[in-house]
Amino acid sequence: MLRDITIGQYLARDTAVHRLDPRTKIISTMLFMVLLFLVPHLAGYAFLGSFAAAVVILAGIPPRMLLRSIRSLAFILTLTFLLQLFMTPGEPLFALGPLVATREGFTMGAFMISRLTLLIVMTSLLTLTTSPIALTDGLEYLLRPFRRFGLPAHELAMMMTIALRFIPTLLEEADKIMKAQMARGADFRSGNLLRRARSLIPLLVPLFVSAFRRADELALAMEARCYRGGEGRTRMKQLAFAPRDGIAFTTVAAMFLGVLFLRVWS
């Protein structure tokens, strides 16, 4: 049952969006996130929303997958909306006991919901259309300039790669340990939360012990294969920008300028 968990939600397709350089996608997503906080009125959100919808269609992502990630954050979305609605001072709309909803609050709430929803949609799009390996590679490239401030870009990327590599292995092992403990009478499924949390100890202790042993052996194997950090290391797959990356950047930049223009104008 633990095998059903999938980490990252990459959806392998062969579309223009999937083929974009991971760096393009990461930078564009970040720019889009900034845009979300610059847009002055709801019409702007409609514009950004239609852009997001266009990308979703282009990437061939079933909308229900996005709805699922929005739904998982529905609670936070509702809470934010209600807080904005009742806490913003202004022209009263209606009262609920001591709480007064305001027109300004409603507008602010709508703003926040649009922002957060688009935020979720765009970040999900990034992980849905970019394989974890490509994402890691892209991050390593983008973080490289920060190395001179002491950021271990290569090490972080290597850690992510190894984590991705070992997630399925450790899940499989957890499954095995769980079955072994269940065969000896361990009960993982009944009791209250505390009881269930405590029943995980016989699962987690062996899992951690084995993870440390694996780490030790992997380190030895990496050393035997001449690994000595990122210095002087080359890569087989080198990231390369293609014309489509130029198109993507131009589109995002045009949107950015447009929104800035709108903002200065109004």
Partner: peptide, 8 residues
Amino acid sequence: DNQIVATV
């Protein structure tokens, strides 16, 4: 399992 580094 403990000597393969990459995911591909």
